[in-house]
Structure formats: C-alpha cells, structure tokens
Design a protein around this nucleic acid. Structure first.
Lengths: 174, 174
DNA sequence: TATTCGCTGGGCAATGTGCTCAGTGGTATG
DNA sequence: CATACCACTGAGCACATTGCCCAGCGAATA
C-alpha cells in the first residue's frame, strides 16, 4: 500500500502542513522530483484525499459535540440520509450494524441548542428513535499518524531485507 | 466569531486546498494583504487548526471502521485513556454522558482483524464492557463547510444592515 | 478633531514551482 | 543474457508566488 518513504512524507506533511515540496525533499534527503512523484501518487491513489483546512467547530461557536444513535423505519434509509445531509450541524453520518441503524456526530451552540438540533434531526418521519450521548472530553482527537506509521512499518517489514540496500540510499531515516 | 469574508476564505480553501494567497485574493476580489491577515487571524484564533493531509484509512489497508462504546470501571478513566492512546487503530476517543462512558472510533484491516483490535482495546483492566457497531456506509463523511456557511451567514445577519454599505467593499465585522 | 484600525495597491528581493532533461541502477521481460 | 522499463538523482530554466515593506484612504472610536 504505502512504503516507508510515503509514510515519512505524510508524517512530515502532517507536522508542517504548509511546507513546500523543495523543503520536504531537503528534510527527507531525497530529490525534489521524488517527493513530487510520491505526493502525486499518494493523491491519485486516494491515500491523501486532500489538504482541507481543519476547522474547529468550537471556535465557530459550536462548542457542544454529541453522538446520536438513530433507529430508522424500514425502507426509509435513503430519505433519512438525504434529510440529515441538509442539517449543517450534522458533521458526519454512518450507517452501522448493531442495535441502532445510524450514528451521527452533531454539534450545537449550547446544551440548550442541542435540543433544537436534535429536534430538527429526529423531526422526520423515518426516524423511530434517537439516543444521544454528549461529549464531555476528547482525550484522543481524530488522528491518523500512528496508523500511517504502523502501515509504513508494515510495508518496511513486508518488503523487508530486499529493500535494505536501496533503502540506505533512497530512504534514509532522520 | 467569523464574518462573511472569513467564511468565503475557508470555503475556498476547502475546495482548493493547494491554492495560494495571491490566487485567493483574486478570486475573492480583495487585496492580498487582506487575505493574508484573515488567514493569520483565523489560525491564531484557532478557527483553523491546520492543514494536515486527510488520509483515507481504507487506502492504507484499513477498510473497516467501527464505533465502540466502552464502560469504564470507576476511577480508571485516566488509565484507560492512556491505554487507548497507544493503540494506532483507535482514531478518536471521547468521554460521553449516557449509558456508555467512552466512545471510540476504530479501524481494522478486516472484520476478522477487528476482533484483534477490539481484544487489544478491551484487554485492559479498567474496561468493563464494550459494545461495537461496525460501519457499513458513510453517507455523510466528516464535513464542516455547511456549518462554516451557517456561521458566516449568522455573522452577516448579526452585524446586518449596519455593515451593508461597507460590506460591499471591506466585508468587515468580527 | 485626532487616533486607530482594516483594507487597498504598489514595489522589491528571495524563494519555490512546474517543467524538462540526461544519467544511473535495480527489476522484470523476452 | 540482452532489453526495456521504472524510480530516483541532480541540474537548469522561465515564471509565479511569497514575505515584507510602504503610503494612502475611509470608517469607527475616543
């Protein structure tokens, strides 16, 4: 999937997002064209979806986050999805196995405002029941780097010794 | 919190992340320095946390996503948090109100692999029970733009008519 | 009225970008 | 074994962008 150099590119990019290709090539000890090519490949692979700004809902005035588990009336799934997509406070929606049918992440301006949001969310015919859990703390914010490092490490071991020699040239660790 | 111009900056940045400040200023019809200043302010405000690459776990070889609700033994919260932070497959962790005590997002290489991940997650003393919901579909991937637009619109209405005249040129308020 | 603040529009040197090229060493294919 | 292919290197080039400076302007504020 991705090799060790790819991993280092991603990690570096995650740490200093506004870094340029040239500076990256210097840090990684490879040629500029190589970094360029890796980046292009990672993006066309879909490994890197984009570089959108990470916006903090709290700073936007929505400090309350909650997760709602929804039970859907049979056959209404598509309508419910479309409905939820129109609610800006619904940041994310998944269909799941288990007791609930859908799980969505909500934000609101306050606990009181959350009531309004939930009313809007469940105020739709196909939704039978909703159970909500308000987020108090977020000890591990959404992260990907540990997984990238694990994937890169796995690649290193998979391609293993065969790469070692080339490795010392193309993939020097920092 | 943010005004209309801030909103446009964020939306534009979300749509074309690799765009430069100069090109932005052209698109938005304002001076380069203005965009520069707005961006700096948004970042120091914490509205924009960063521009980290968005990595797709599926493309990394982790196509299975799940949400686990954990029940924690009283007083073991801190230990559990520390434990979960060491598991790369734990992408996110929240403490919540409601029947569970924590909610975490997991990824795995397969359904079978998910078992391994869950075993690792719950294989820790402080965790009493875990209930897992596997994600089937993701009709609304994590998004923020609708919320940004709503916040920007709210600002526009809040500062309202008073700003109208200036608006067409400077797009001010805060 | 004087001050402050945000925005404009311009100019400047330094830097980075997109692009191209030849050369090299591994790896697969015939 | 020879060949083609692929990824990487290192270099060069024209061009655009950046970071930084400035003076001027209008509106809000004291």
């Amino acid at each position: 999937m991705i090799d060790h150099l790819d991993g280092r590119v991603i990690v570096l990019l995650a740490r200093e997002p506004r870094i340029g290709v040239l500076e990256m090539s210097r840090r990684l000890g490879v040629a500029r064209g190589t970094v360029q090519a890796r980046l292009d490949r990672l993006q066309s692979n879909g490994v890197i979806r984009g570089f959108g700004p990470e916006v903090d809902p709290a700073a936007l005035g929505y400090p309350v986050t909650a997760f709602a588990t929804l039970q859907i009336r049979q056959g209404q799934g598509a309508d419910v999805r479309a409905h939820l997509a129109t609610v800006p406070e619904v940041l994310e929606l998944h269909t799941t196995t288990g007791s609930g049918d859908m799980l969505c992440r909500l934000v609101a301006r306050s606990n009181a405002d959350l009531q309004r949001v939930i009313d809007r969310v469940v105020g739709f015919d196909g939704i039978v029941r909703a159970s909500t859990a308000i987020v108090m703390e977020n000890p591990v914010p959404l992260r990907i780097i540990p997984l990238v490092e694990q994937a890169a490490q796995a690649a290193r071991e998979r391609d293993g010794r065969a790469e070692r020699s080339a490795d010392s040239r193309t993939d020097r660790p920092e």
